[in-house]
């Protein structure tokens, strides 16, 4: 990373990668663009390489966070759908409306009913 043209290329790629993650994940590409674009534009004027590199590092960190979040969301959704642990609450189909607290309550109720 020596020249501004190179960092420019890297930054563009990072932005594209963020959008790609938005497209494949539950976040949605619009959502990610609306959040990321202003932040990218806010730093568009930077010319100091050190500062730019700092921003690049931060973006890489954010990308890793988004990846982890997507992975986690997917894992939880699939676990909820297929794990025996969740079988009791699976019959309640409007899962979105429940918070974790409610879910626990409901599974407890079901347990009681079995006893």
């Amino acid at each position: 990373m020596t020249s501004l043209t190179e960092t420019r290329y890297i930054v563009k790629n990072l932005y594209k990668q963020l959008l790609y993650l938005g497209r494949i994940s539950f976040l949605g590409v619009e959502n990610v663009r609306n959040k990321a674009k202003p932040q990218f534009m806010a730093n568009a004027h930077l010319t100091d390489l050190n500062e730019i590199n700092q921003c690049i590092e931060r973006t890489r960190y954010v990308i890793k966070e988004v990846e982890a979040m997507h992975r986690f969301h997917k894992y939880r959704t699939l676990k909820k759908a297929y794990d025996p642990e969740f079988q009791k609450i699976n019959d309640q189909f409007d899962i979105e409306k429940f918070t974790l607290y409610n879910n626990n309550n409901n599974s407890n109720n079901n347990n009681n009913s079995k006893q």
Partner: peptide, 12 residues
Amino acid sequence: DLRLNEPRYAKL
């Protein structure tokens, strides 16, 4: 099954 591994993200 679900817990075998964590799929990677393809590079652009």
